[in-house]
């Protein structure tokens, strides 16, 4: 077993994710008054990249629940563009990619799912950053 696939306990994972979430909230709270715009760019770029990496890892690793994770991509995309400025043409392309990812996930076509997930998250980051630049 490689170090990348070394198992951790569920409790340790919960603790690490909890600490990361708390640290993120504290950082956002502290930096927001002076750097709200920079935080917006950071979230627009880092959020889709991290979620894309999580989806790709889950699909490649397999598992009973992990293979359905890309189905959340459409909801995440809609949630992000609904409350942030975005570029409509890029958003339309990204939504198309998210639908393709959903179909590929349901049909169990892993290569299409992975490529579509990367494309969708890239378009999500592009439309959010472009929307902030244009507005």
């Amino acid at each position: 077993m490689s170090s990348a696939h070394k198992s951790t306990s569920r409790n340790a994972a919960i603790a690490v994710v909890g600490v990361a979430g708390t640290a993120g909230i504290a950082a956002g709270w502290q930096v927001a008054p002076s750097g709200a715009n920079a935080l917006g760019y950071l979230h627009a770029g880092a959020g889709p990249v991290c979620f894309s990496a999580l989806c790709v890892y889950a699909v490649r690793r397999g598992g009973r629940a992990a293979r359905w994770l890309p189905l959340l991509l459409l909801g995440v995309f809609l949630l992000d563009i609904a409350r942030s400025p975005h570029v409509p043409i890029l958003s339309a392309l990204g939504l198309t990619a998210a639908v393709i990812v959903g179909i590929a996930t349901l049909r169990g076509h892993r290569p299409t799912t992975i490529v579509g997930t990367v494309a969708c998250c890239s378009l999500l980051a592009a439309t959010l950053i472009g929307g902030r630049l244009l507005h």
Partner: peptide, 15 residues
């Protein structure tokens, strides 16, 4: 990866 994704979303939540 889960921690990184949570950190990114947590920053937006804190803001």
């Amino acid at each position: 990866l889960a921690a990184a994704a949570t950190l990114a979303e947590g920053i937006a939540c804190g803001k």
